[in-house]
Amino acid sequence: MINKAILVGNVGRDPEIRYFDNDQAVANFSLATTERSFKTRDGQEIPERTEWHNIVAWRGLAKLAENYIKKGTQLYIEGKIKTRSYDDANGVKKYATEIVADVIQLLGRKSDNDGSSTYPSQSGGQPASTSSAPRPPESNKVQNGPDKQPDFLSDDNGPEDDLPF
């Protein structure tokens, strides 16, 4: 089974960074992706539509977010879709869907980002490409691997399969 999200969009708010006792860091921020307007075959105009995604970045990617990402930054993100539940102050069960980032690449002009343009995780795993979406250069990618996630977030049942496509 595959659970992979690839997003290109603009950061909607400055990242919120939290540190834990064991010096682990996590960053949370929103990312807006926009589908441009278009006309259907029968001439109907479909308006532009923006989707907002909650992004979660751990460890090195959280530190990247702290140092280089701010509201308006254009990003390429690869990650996994995760849904979690919690009880609000009134005891009502709520659900939150998030993209847990494995790869973050800064896009746009270098002056917009005040630093290097690509940041992958520390795992070294190289996923196979099945999409024509823009791909960050493999040599500059910063990634977080599932082996680096805190135990309370990991639901890994074993190593990921290497697919031939």
Score class of each variant (00 low, 15 high):
R59Y: 00
N22D: 15
E16V: 13
D151H: 06
K94E: 13
G91P: 12
N90I: 07
D156T: 10
I104N: 00
G60S: 14
L64F: 02
T34K: 08
Q126V: 14
G43W: 05
M1Q: 05
Y19L: 06
N54K: 11
K94I: 04
D112V: 01
N28H: 12
A25F: 03
S131D: 11
G145I: 02
E35M: 04
S111P: 00
G72W: 04
I104H: 01
Y76T: 01
I17S: 06
S85P: 03
K93C: 10
S116G: 09
S37H: 12
V103I: 13
L61S: 02
G60D: 12
N3Q: 06
E35Q: 15
E35A: 12
P137V: 11
L106W: 01
N113W: 09
V8D: 00
N3R: 08
F29K: 01
N113Y: 07
D102W: 01
Y76W: 13
L7W: 08
E98P: 12
G12Q: 10
N157F: 10
E66W: 07
I2E: 08
V56D: 01
F20Y: 15
G60Q: 11
Y86S: 13
F20K: 06
A101K: 01
R109E: 15
N90T: 14
D156S: 15
F29S: 03
K39G: 02
S154A: 09
D156P: 03
Q105S: 15
R49W: 06
K148T: 11
S121I: 07
G158W: 07
G79A: 10
A27H: 02
Q24D: 13
F165A: 03
V56C: 04
E35H: 07
A62R: 02
V92S: 09
Q74I: 04
V92L: 10
P127A: 10
I81Q: 11
R13D: 10
S117Y: 04
T118Y: 07
P15N: 09
A89N: 14
I69F: 05
P159A: 11
V26T: 06
K63P: 01
G79D: 08
K93H: 07
A57C: 09
V8N: 01
W58G: 02
S129Y: 08
D42P: 02
D42T: 13
V11H: 00
S111E: 15
I55C: 05
I69N: 01
G72R: 03
E51M: 07
I81V: 15
Q143C: 09
R49G: 00
A89T: 11
D102F: 01
G124E: 08
S154K: 13
P146E: 07
Q44G: 03
L107D: 07
S111H: 12
R59W: 00
I17L: 09
L31R: 07
N144T: 14
E160L: 09
L163G: 05
N157R: 12
G158Y: 07
A133F: 13
Q24H: 12
A89Q: 15
E98N: 13
V103Y: 05
E98D: 14
